[in-house]
Computed example of a mutant assay.
Amino acid sequence: MISDTPESWDVVETKERFSGRVIRVVTDTVRMPRDEVADRDYVVHPGSVAVLALDDLDRVLMIRQYRHPARRLLWELPAGLRDVAGESLVDGAARELAEEAGYRAATWHTLVDLRTSPGMSDERIRVFLARDLTRIPDEENGFVHRHEEVDMPVEWVPLPDAVEKALMGMIHNSPAVAGILAAYAASVEGFATLRPADAPEA
């Protein structure tokens, strides 16, 4: 059966190399097979959520945001950190959709779970499918955009066009690419095979 499974090898020692506002960098000395040990450096990350919002015309809501490490303006899905204590993943996704794009959704499903770069980070991203969308009036949405989120445009892209742009190398953000392709695949079955919004994480 092809399914990722939990596994944790013995950690002999952990050293913290860096601690910042969002991430930490650590080195674990891990006991390998045949009783060898090896150092593994990785980023400790709180995790993220992202939202593929799909309207009644099967268009994907996309935003464009500057990403400094990539030195690019990237087309992305509304997304954010899991940084509110006690907040469920779907509530965090709904908050991000409201704050970044000004929409709320009545129907939510788990679309796909990602490990962004498992060889160098423990970051997990859950991408949700949000449908039955309504615009939040400006006077009700008091979120103040700052830094990279200032003047962040919102565009609606037909789902087949978004798939083409991902495959042609025009969209590079990993949760956006994964979410677009997953939504396109799931649409064949009318989204009937998707997990509920509160599905447990593996």
Rank of each mutant, 00 (worst) to 15 (best):
M1C: 07
I2M: 11
S3C: 11
D4K: 15
P6S: 13
P6F: 13
V12Y: 09
E13A: 10
R17V: 15
G20T: 07
G20C: 04
R24Y: 00
R24F: 00
T27E: 09
R31Y: 03
P33L: 05
R34Q: 12
R34P: 09
D35Q: 09
V37N: 08
A38F: 12
A38C: 10
R40W: 11
R40G: 09
V43H: 15
V43R: 15
V44T: 14
P46K: 15
G47M: 14
V49M: 08
V51W: 03
V51A: 03
A53N: 05
D56V: 10
R59L: 02
V60H: 00
L61A: 03
W75Y: 15
E76F: 14
L77C: 08
G80K: 06
L81E: 06
R82A: 06
A85L: 07
G86Q: 00
E87Y: 04
S88D: 01
S88M: 02
D91W: 01
D91Q: 09
A93R: 01
A94C: 03
R95T: 11
A98L: 09
E99R: 03
E100F: 08
A101I: 08
G102P: 05
T107N: 11
T107C: 11
H109W: 09
L111P: 09
D113W: 08
R115E: 15
P118M: 01
M120Y: 11
S121H: 00
E123M: 05
E123V: 01
R124W: 07
V127N: 04
D132T: 02
E139W: 09
N141L: 06
V144T: 12
V144N: 04
V144I: 12
H145Y: 03
R146L: 11
P153M: 03
V154A: 04
E155Q: 09
V157N: 06
P158A: 01
P158L: 02
P158K: 02
L159R: 04
L159G: 05
P160T: 09
A162T: 04
E164A: 14
E164W: 10
K165L: 13
A166K: 06
M170K: 13
A176T: 09
V177L: 07
G179H: 01
I180S: 00
I180L: 01
L181E: 03
A182D: 01
Y184I: 04
A186H: 04
A186Q: 06
S187N: 05
S187F: 01
S187C: 03
E189V: 03
G190I: 05
T193Q: 08
D198I: 14
D198W: 12
A199T: 08
E201N: 15
